[in-house]
Design a protein around this nucleic acid. Structure first.
Lengths: 343, 343
DNA sequence: CCTGGCCTCTAAACCGATCAAGTAGGGTGA
DNA sequence: TCACCCTACTTGATCGGTTTAGAGGCCAGG
């Protein structure tokens, strides 16, 4: 009871007058002990606050009850900060139901991420791995297969069979929803201020915009590093051009706020002179003046679903098919309106 | 090289023609092997990509090379989201220099947080623990002492000797800086929209404001749950009162943005009719229109310092004294100005 | 030539769980 | 009465490291 040395299975066994093996059977619900003995052992375990040693379990190859999430961060490919926090919260909330904990690691690039995966795997530290932010020609999936690890990828597409399954947001639908809404409002010149070129969703969204040419919408795609400084510069250039967009769509809320400010500084009224929207919502997007139209996604639930798929795979011991994540919805706010004839 | 079974110390020993014990000595830089043998062993280790099994190490009570951070989140006591992300990034960046990883766990309350601490400690999963958000009468410090664990507390005060040392931000100085600035601009009626009552820094900041009564500044403190909805309501009430504040200071940037919007909706111009400031800075605070005056703190560095103190304690095996964190500085922006005579 | 001490290395116990193989004791059928 | 089976356990190997005690070999001092 008092502090001191840890209570081991051997201590429990001694108190119950049985062997350590019997205690192990009782704890893991395996046959080989009578119900009476099992109850006695379990109550002794309870009284003495016995906790399994995760190290010892990992050593014999049992579950670690931990999943790993290595995050290649400097690329800022996560978009806004709130996304990250909500995602983690969603993952954690599902994991903790199953008494599984999350091991989070920030790494500088994909190479380091894969190195971390190898370490985790080789010392049985994690039962599964969460990955995010798929690239064109992503090397991670093959590596995971080589390690024979369970994993999920949070992405924009269902993975090909055999690869690491994904929880995917239909990014083309998302783009379709937002761009169509703007088109329906009457916008014909739309600029999309995107993220880096090597992210999957950048392409998907750009393609959707390109397809709308047939509806008489001319689109312009400009890639950035997600920084507000770039967003400001791009916005300034767009609003100074000879042919100006009537609507600008940003990949995340921080860039949208930066763009909004530039528009206001240049004397353009939002949404009268130019409409502004974001592919990423946040508390702030709804609070500023004017509030910003955005695609709202339930990031928390996305995390939950990813965790669920991963846990199911761990239990099943196999790779399961990809599943779709929660579909983002359009939250129309004050920053969008039909273009005025003058503009 | 190929996948398959893991390379163990026994494999290395066989290849080097020595015993496993000798390999262990060589790897850990302990005396007992000749330099020649040590070199030979190390190069074999290198060639064969041997990696220590953290499970096996933990089992014998060696370093886990992991530190734990359990976060009681629902109270939203972390303030804005960016704070959290930056802090983690700072911690991680220092830890990864020492090849230490961070185990992050989100929990629902302090009781669960302490339970997690116990588990971590009892199975040697972590070498140290990071805590944040000190309460009045915090039970965690005693528990950590009972567990004989190394820990740091990120807080507003140097800890009493014997307790868990802290990396502290001088919150009274921070409050002094911001309130004095407003007073110097000529504000005499300042409202402070604070966080929950049981957080240490709420008191500290409120006390500073109270002391300014001697300088002819009348202060009003209103506690909230950090939600933007409460911030809006409070702001609306304040700006509708008979005696209206000339400046409103919020505990974080989200609340400040909410307050700003309410002021604008009520037809008050910021900063002409009322000044607004925040105790917490963020990218957004600098981007919106008008940009918001805030206390900028180097959260990344705060995380780094906390990690450094923790690592030093782990190496030393003892508790070290508290250290001061980076001092926040005032970033004056557009949302503050001298009050106009009319207001 | 013997003793002692140092250096380098080996052997074996140990950490705390899991699990396959083995055993004691009671019951059953022929 | 004996063979046999079943239940309810125990024994001991195992995972991959660390660590202590001790074994040889070599050299110096007396």
């Amino acid at each position: 009871m008092a502090s001191g040395k840890r209570v081991t299975i051997a201590d429990i066994a001694r108190m119950a007058g049985v062997s350590p093996g019997a205690v192990s059977f009782a704890l893991n619900g395996r046959p080989g002990v009578s119900d009476e003995t099992r109850q006695r052992i379990l109550s002794i375990v309870e009284e003495n606050h016995w906790q399994p040693s995760s190290a010892a379990r990992a050593l014999v190859g049992a579950r670690a009850n931990t999943v790993g999430f290595a995050l290649a961060r400097p690329a800022r490919s996560l978009g806004s900060e709130a996304f990250f926090t909500d995602l983690i919260a969603g993952i954690e909330s599902r994991l903790s139901e199953s008494k599984v904990s999350l091991q989070l690691r920030l790494v500088s690039d994909i190479a380091e991420e894969m190195e971390v995966h190898r370490q985790w795997r080789s010392s049985n530290q994690v039962d599964g791995i969460i990955m995010i932010d798929p690239r064109d020609d992503d090397p991670r999936s093959d590596r995971i297969t080589a390690l024979d690890a369970r994993a999920v990828l949070i992405g924009s597409n269902p993975s090909p069979v055999g690869a690491v399954p994904s929880v995917w947001i239909a990014d083309d639908e998302v783009a379709e929803t937002l761009f169509s809404y703007l088109a329906a409002l009457g916008h014909t010149r739309i600029t999309y201020v995107a993220g880096p070129d090597d992210l999957e969703h950048t392409h998907l969204r750009a393609q959707v915009l390109a397809r709308m040419a047939s509806d008489g919408v001319s689109g312009d795609v400009i890639t950035t590093d997600f920084s507000p400084a770039r967003a400001s510069a791009v916005t300034r250039a767009q609003l100074s051009g000879r042919v100006r967009p009537t609507a600008i769509v940003y990949d995340n809320d921080v860039m949208a706020v930066a763009g909004l400010r530039v528009a206001q500084e240049m004397g353009r009224s939002v949404p009268r002179d130019v409409s502004i929207a974001s592919f990423d919502d946040s508390v702030i997007a709804g609070l500023i003046n004017p509030s910003i139209t955005a695609m709202t996604r339930d990031t928390f639930e996305l995390g939950e679903r990813a965790a669920t798929l991963l846990l199911e795979q761990i239990v099943a011991g196999t790779t399961l098919p990809s599943i779709q994540g929660p579909t983002p919805t359009l939250t129309a706010r004050e920053s969008t309106a039909p273009p005025t004839a003058a503009s």
